[in-house]
């Protein structure tokens, strides 16, 4: 049911939850527990599958753990365990809150909300364009990767891997800039004058 909340309510609920998760001192166990319960409740309310959250957390925890464990390790295990736990708990809670927001708030709705928060139009225009072509570039990258591995018959050395990966980025850069030129031409031919126009209310009314 969280999905049908007004966009502002969702955004501010998420901000409030992250604020609570990052500000409550870790030594106040019950308070942290309450915040965790509220976040968990929000997840169940939005019917986000627990397995999905778990899978995302499995990807997320190793990096956070590495970051956090470096503190007590650098102190030779003497101090810093409290900080370690703090970072782990706060990181996990704010990550799951952000995950909740990602799931209840489609990206175009987020854009409309940002627009009503008076974020500059230029920024939003660039953002929407970026979001549109992000997946196109990903697909292109995938095709280039497949092409590369299809032509590679042996295990490359480390330097070769690096060089080919950097060339992949360079080639993608050239293609992306060429595509930007084509898009610009297409925009010009449709009457682009440098000002962005938005279809108001279209996303707002949709459930």
């Amino acid at each position: 049911m969280c999905h049908r909340w007004p966009p502002f309510a969702k955004l501010f609920a998420a901000i409030a939850m992250i604020l609570a998760a990052t500000c409550v001192p870790i030594t106040h166990g019950p308070l942290v527990g309450i915040v965790a319960c509220v976040i968990f409740f929000a997840h169940t309310l939005a019917r986000i599958p627990l397995a999905y959250v778990g899978r995302r957390l499995l990807f997320f925890w190793p990096t956070l753990f590495l970051m956090a464990i470096s503190l007590p390790l650098s102190q030779a295990g003497q101090k810093g365990w409290l900080l370690f736990v703090t970072i782990l708990v706060r990181g996990t809670l704010s990550f799951s809150t952000a995950l909740w927001l990602v799931n209840v708030m489609p990206f175009d709705q987020l854009l409309a909300t940002l627009r009503r928060l008076r974020v500059p139009d230029v920024l939003l225009a660039i953002l929407s364009l970026m979001y549109r072509f992000l997946f196109v570039l990903w697909d292109e990258l995938d095709r280039m990767r497949i092409a590369r591995s299809a032509r590679l018959f042996r295990k490359p050395s480390l330097w070769e891997t690096w060089r080919s990966a950097a060339h992949l980025v360079g080639r993608l850069l050239i293609r992306a800039l060429d595509r930007a030129d084509r898009i610009h031409g297409a925009m010009l031919s449709r009457g682009w004058d440098g000002r962005s126009r938005w279809i108001e209310q279209l996303r707002e009314d949709r459930p």
Partner: peptide, 25 residues
């Protein structure tokens, strides 16, 4: 100069995003 920067910057942002997906072992 206005009208070309928006597609160019948007594409650059998408490129950096995609470029971060390329792994360097």
């Amino acid at each position: 100069v206005g009208d070309r920067t928006i597609p160019l910057t948007g594409m650059m942002a998408a490129l950096v995003f995609a470029g971060q997906m390329v792994n360097f072992p």
